[in-house]
């Protein structure tokens, strides 16, 4: 055990717990919207746009006809937070499993950079998906 000070470990660990607790709510909400209200097989690009751009959650699944009007910014906030938190929580979790393996000791520095870069790539991909269903952006960008 090295006595080198690395206080980031404590903060990272704390963030892992904080994002975990937040994800219970955010991912729970995500499942409720996509699977319980809308139903995964009813998801189309059109109703995804409705949700992300206007915060309108509409579905006709097991629970019957449901229509919820959320403030758009609130729905967008849950979507972006869900994206950021799940990437942090998931990637930091996997990274830690690898950090614990003596066999990978040599590659610790490389693994760290790999996970940082990979997480950023995932986040950018997530933001692009968000923008694809965010109408003001898509109207300008849409390749067709």
């Amino acid at each position: 055990m090295s006595t080198k000070k690395s206080n980031t470990a404590g903060w990272n660990w704390f963030l892992q717990r904080a994002t975990g607790v937040a994800l219970v709510v955010l991912l729970g909400f995500h499942f409720a919207v996509e699977h319980f209200i809308v139903g995964a097989h009813h998801i189309t690009a059109e109703n995804t746009v409705e949700r992300i751009t206007y915060g309108v959650i509409e579905g006709d699944h097991v629970l019957g006809q449901i229509s919820i009007n959320m403030p758009a910014f609130l729905y967008q906030a849950t979507a972006i937070l869900l994206l950021a938190f799940s990437i942090y929580h998931g990637m930091y979790g996997v990274y830690n499993i690898l950090m614990e393996q003596d066999g990978l000791k040599k590659y610790r520095a490389q693994l760290k950079y790999f996970f940082i870069v990979f997480s950023i790539v995932l986040f950018i991909q997530g933001i692009l998906i968000f923008l694809a269903f965010f109408e003001p952006f898509w109207e300008i960008y849409d390749p067709r």
């Binding site: 055990m1 090295s2 006595t3 080198k4 000070k5 690395s6 206080n7 470990a9 404590g10 950090m99």
Partner: peptide, 12 residues
């Protein structure tokens, strides 16, 4: 506490 707190300390 600082010594135990490093990345291979108590948080493992």
């Amino acid at each position: 506490l600082e010594m135990l707190e490093n990345s291979h300390g108590i948080y493992r």
